[in-house]
Design a protein around this nucleic acid. Structure first.
Length: 460
DNA sequence: ATCACGGTTTGCA
DNA sequence: CTAACGTGCAAACCGTGAT
């Protein structure tokens, strides 16, 4: 699914490549969001299921059965709905609280299988297998799959290879070809066999090759993963970027992209959301912008950073060109870098005042925290007030602690509103099985069932 | 000619 | 029934002004 893409890497490595050959494993949860829903509703097993993006916008996860029925990834729901209903496909709004919680459980289990783990996205992680070479890595992979399934209910696939890019392709192979039973180790392949396999993989499947790059590569006659592997690195660099050059090196077994075990602090933090309905009035926009700012500020503090400015943007619906279009961004510098929700919200609302125009139907708003630096190393000035800073820090810590314990939004600011009629659509959300006590009655009242707690026979 | 910057666009997942 | 196309991030790019 989604994840961070490469981060910069010393140039020397690109020239020489890694001297040590350490295997990487890429563990990827199968159809992750769908699998999460199935853990708590086993009747969905074997049935076509899809999960929708925020605001029930488009399809972001499909079960194998849904894929087989020709349901396309990223299909706008309002277009796909009719056909999906006709085919009896189960559909869920996304429930990120549930998926994040399940992800944390999966990652914890996976972390027990290697001292080196990079959590790459909500449903994927790399494990470093340096020093494991004497093991039977395929058998080890099967052990991992089995335990993750047993302890969390989530099925995973595993690809193993000498570079992260190849491990991704190995993972792809593990899922595509039945005979691998969910674990594929390129280390087991002769170079001839590996090339034959790469020849059968479209270049778009390669990590870092997206729609645009795919198109340009095709025009150059590069169609398969093997074509890209055999391409001229310098030419790729000249016509594309160092990133793609690294990809080529990695396809050739030259490891250029390290495991990133500590996730680097973000340079900017964005929080944005589409509205459930068109929004016109400043009051609603203020509430939305305040809510988004609170969430971004929470992330900011979680990574121990302070922001030096905050950008605010609002826009109308670009998919409705017949309505008046408008979009604007405004950046508010902060007097001094900070992480206090109250200060950030105040700045955000000031920014909103600059971008807001009456008479438009707004579809989406967002904020961006920029100019981030480590709180601990930020420069201090004579005008800092240690007492009020300590007070702010204590209050923010209290908010973060309560919200972590009692659920997001338990303690908030009045500015973020209470009715939130602008909130995104998510009418098909499943209960927050693992993260919300209030959902328990709904869970127990004959709704979807948990396999461990429910002994009723499945009805046909 | 080169650099640093800030804002915008592009691309990826 | 309404109406209806996501989000987060960083690299690359580009124009500007300073040196």
């Amino acid at each position: 699914m989604l994840g961070r893409r490469h981060v910069l890497h010393p140039q020397a490595r690109l020239e020489r490549g890694s001297t040590r050959m350490q295997p990487f494993a890429l563990v990827d949860c199968n159809n992750f969001y769908v699998s999460c829903e199935r853990v708590f509703n086993p009747r969905l097993e074997g049935k076509p299921v899809v999960v929708l993006s925020n605001n029930d916008g488009c399809i972001v996860a499909r079960s194998n059965e849904a894929k087989a029925l020709g349901i396309r990834m990223a299909a706008p729901w309002y277009q796909a709905e009719k056909e999906a209903r006709r085919q009896g496909i189960a559909c869920f709004s996304s429930n990120y609280a549930l998926y994040a919680d399940m992800s944390a459980r999966v990652m914890t289990v996976l972390g027990q299988f290697s001292p080196h783990q990079e959590i790459y996205s909500i449903d994927e992680c790399y494990l470093g297998f340096a020093g494991f070479e004497s093991r039977d890595l395929v058998a080890y992979g099967q052990e991992i799959r089995h335990r993750v399934k047993q302890w969390t209910g989530i099925p995973v696939g595993i690809g193993i290879a000498s570079t992260k890019t190849l491990a991704k392709l190995a993972n792809h192979t593990a899922k595509k070809q039945e005979r691998f039973a969910g674990v594929c180790d390129f280390g087991r392949f002769s170079s001839r066999d590996l090339d034959a396999l790469l020849e059968g993989i479209a270049v778009i499947e390669v990590w870092g090759v997206g729609r645009k790059t795919h198109l340009r590569l095709q025009k150059m006659g590069i169609h398969t993963a093997l074509d890209l592997k055999r391409s001229d690195r310098r030419q790729i660099r000249a016509q594309f970027s160092v990133m793609l050059e690294r990809t080529v090196a990695e396809l050739n077994g030259l490891s250029c992209i390290d495991l990133e075990e500590a996730d680097p602090a973000k340079q900017q933090i964005i929080s944005s959301r589409s509205f459930g309905r068109p929004v016109c009035c400043l009051q609603d926009l203020s509430e939305a912008v305040s809510s988004y700012t609170l969430r971004a500020a929470e992330k900011l503090r979680a990574q121990g950073s302070v922001a030096s400015s905050i950008g605010v943007y609002i826009l109308t619906n670009p998919f409705k060109p017949e309505t008046p279009q408008y979009q604007k961004t405004f950046v508010v510098p902060l007097a001094k870098p900070g992480d206090d929700a109250r200060v950030l919200v105040q700045a955000a609302l000031k920014g909103l005042g600059h971008v807001y125009r009456e008479g438009f139907q707004y579809k989406k708003a967002g904020i961006v925290l920029m100019g981030l630096e480590r709180k601990s190393t930020r420069p201090r000035t004579l005008f800092d007030d240690p007492v009020s800073e300590a007070r702010s820090t204590r209050l923010m810590h209290l908010m973060d602690t309560i919200n972590a314990r009692m659920g997001q939004g338990t303690l908030t600011l009045a500015a973020s509103g209470t009715h939130k009629t602008w909130r995104m659509r998510r009418g098909r959300k499943s209960p927050d099985y693992t993260t919300c006590w209030e959902e328990l009655p709904r869970v127990l009242a004959g709704g979807p069932r948990h396999p461990l707690f429910d002994t009723r026979k499945d009805s046909p």
